[in-house]
Design a protein around this nucleic acid. Structure first.
Length: 105
DNA sequence: GTACTGACCAGAT
DNA sequence: CATCTGGCCAGTA
């Protein structure tokens, strides 16, 4: 298995998401110069090693929800990392994008 | 080579 | 709300 240039771009974009903010898979893809390639973002994040510094947990889907199997270990890990920086889920189970989304400056 | 899959998404039903 | 549809495109089989 070998990571690609696209993976590199994606990781770099994710690395720029500030603490307390989030971005959608689509946002990341667009900023990485890969509009419409939201699915590639998820694939790239899966390749990240365990102890990575890349804040992969700040990437959520367009519905403001964690895009991992609810109840899975990875889901709980992401939720905890988010809560640790002040990002919580609403009653619906979704994050308030209006408040936390990193909008294009 | 083809066929299916997926940490997605917007729009329609 | 829940499904479905078509689009996306690199991995995997």
């Amino acid at each position: 298995m070998r990571h690609t240039d696209n993976d590199e771009r994606i990781w770099q974009v994710v690395a720029l998401i500030p603490e307390g903010k989030v971005a959608t898979y689509g946002d990341v893809a667009a900023q990485a110069g890969l509009p419409g390639a939201a699915r590639r973002v998820g694939a790239a994040l899966k390749k990240l090693p365990e102890g990575t510094k890349i804040p992969w947990h700040r990437v959520i889907n367009a519905g403001g929800r964690i895009s991992l199997p609810p109840g899975s270990d990875s889901y709980r890990r992401q939720l905890e990392l988010l809560r640790a920086e002040g990002i919580t889920l609403r009653e619906s189970g979704a994050i308030d994008l209006r408040r936390h989304r990193m909008l294009p400056a």
